[in-house]
Computed example of a mutant assay.
Amino acid sequence: MLSVISLFSGVLFGFGLALSGMVNPSKIIGFLDISGNWDPSLIFVMAGGVLVTIISFRFLLNRPTPIFGGKLVLPTKQDIDTPLLAGAGIFGIGWALGGFCPGPALSALAYGNEKVFIFVGAMIVGIAVAKIGLRSLRLA
């Protein structure tokens, strides 16, 4: 049952990304181009996501267990450190250059666009290199 719920959630998320234009790099780049021809429409997508989160978390976090079982694990780390800032910076640069966020890029694979496949491939390589780099730093 958990797999069915996960699949449904992923399909719903992907559909929402496509419907909102988040899988279109020119839409993202237009949003990030604040000094040129700025497209503010994605503010509504972000506001919708924040609104759903605020409403649902009020109910979900007050439950003793998650709705579909298991254990709810929330992050406990609260400090802002170098890896967080570096990761956020690299993420932002990649988003601005490629016009894709990882989730929408995976959803956009369904369109069969060559540029999306290149981006996702580069993203996977970047994740692997980062894991190897972090592992070697912890061993040093």
Rank of each mutant, 00 (worst) to 15 (best):
I34T: 00
G112A: 04
L2Y: 11
V52Q: 05
I90N: 11
G103S: 13
G98E: 14
G70C: 09
I5V: 14
L7Y: 10
P64D: 14
G98D: 14
R58Y: 06
L97H: 08
V120P: 04
M1H: 12
A47C: 07
D39M: 04
V52Y: 14
P25C: 06
P102K: 03
P102T: 04
T76P: 08
L74W: 03
L137P: 05
G21E: 03
L61R: 13
G30Q: 06
R135G: 10
P83A: 15
T65C: 12
R135P: 03
R135H: 07
S35Y: 10
G69A: 08
L32T: 01
M46D: 07
L85C: 14
L2M: 12
G10Y: 05
V125G: 01
M1I: 08
S26E: 11
M46T: 09
Y111M: 07
F44W: 12
V116W: 01
Y111T: 13
C101G: 11
L51F: 14
G36I: 04
A140Q: 10
S107K: 03
F57I: 00
V11A: 11
V116F: 04
A96G: 12
S41L: 02
A18L: 04
S56R: 09
F31T: 00
I28S: 04
S56G: 06
N113T: 06
L42M: 10
P40E: 09
V50T: 11
L19C: 06
P83N: 10
R138E: 03
L19F: 11
P40W: 05
N24E: 09
K131F: 07
N24T: 03
L84M: 15
R63V: 02
P104Q: 06
L61Y: 14
A110F: 13
I34L: 14
L7W: 09
V4Y: 14
M123Y: 12
G30D: 01
V23Q: 09
W95A: 13
G48R: 05
V50N: 01
S136A: 03
G126S: 08
S41C: 05
L139K: 12
I127Y: 03
M1Y: 14
N37W: 08
R63L: 15
L42V: 04
G112P: 09
S26T: 09
C101N: 12
V125A: 09
F8E: 00
G126R: 00
A128W: 02
S107N: 05
L106S: 04
I5H: 00
I28D: 10
S6K: 01
F100C: 02
W95E: 10
G99L: 04
F59I: 13
Y111S: 11
A128T: 06
G48I: 05
K27T: 11
S107L: 06
A88K: 13
V73L: 14
G133F: 07
F91T: 13
I28V: 15
K115S: 12
L139H: 07
A18Y: 02
I93K: 08
W95Y: 12
S6E: 13
D39C: 03
M22K: 00
G49T: 08
G126M: 01
F15E: 04
G16L: 01
S20V: 02
L60E: 12
K77Q: 14
F100R: 00
V50K: 04
I54M: 14
